[in-house]
């Protein structure tokens, strides 16, 4: 299971890449592995604000619909429109082309509760 250095992680298997006051969000390799072939993504609306752990997006495989929870409090600045036609990008490149949205961070403190790559790896080991 690939875990990428430099990203922050949640126990629900979302990742966030923080640069300044923007966070790019996606789901981890573990999450995409568990879901299988992803066939549909319902992205959040640009401009909408989400608190930590609020339902940000829905990712659907042929077998299940899974909520993506917001890892950091923020306002949606951009969504990955490529996923509409190519939801499988999440399977193919979950930390790269498979990103789901970008958030303008509204509460910096919420970043502190996330795990770094090392902690997330340890967490995966307990599952």
């Amino acid at each position: 299971m690939a875990v990428q250095r430099g990203l922050l992680y949640t126990k629900d298997h979302e990742w966030a890449k923080v640069a300044g006051d923007t966070a790019t969000v996606g789901i981890t390799d573990y999450a995409q592995e568990q879901l299988g072939e992803i066939v549909f993504v319902e992205p959040p609306k640009v401009g909408k604000e989400f608190g930590v752990h609020k339902e940000l997006a829905v990712v659907e495989s042929s077998k299940a619909a899974s909520d993506v929870y917001c890892p950091i409090a923020g306002k949606v600045a951009e969504v990955n429109s490529e996923l509409e036609a190519k939801p499988e990008l999440i399977n193919e490149d979950c930390y790269g082309k498979g990103w789901i949205c970008k958030l303008k961070i509204t509460d910096k403190k919420s970043v502190k509760d996330l795990m770094d790559a090392k902690k997330y790896e340890e967490y995966l080991g307990t599952l």
């Binding site: 299971m1 573990y30 568990q34 299988g36 072939e37 042929s62 599952l127």
Partner: peptide
């Protein structure tokens, strides 16, 4: 297959898929 692809079903630990459902 990985353990993440094995789930409880009717009281047994069974594989959900090995390569992909499709």
């Amino acid at each position: 297959t990985g353990k993440s692809h094995i789930a409880a079903f009717a009281g047994y630990l069974m594989p959900l898929w090995y390569s992909s459902i499709g």
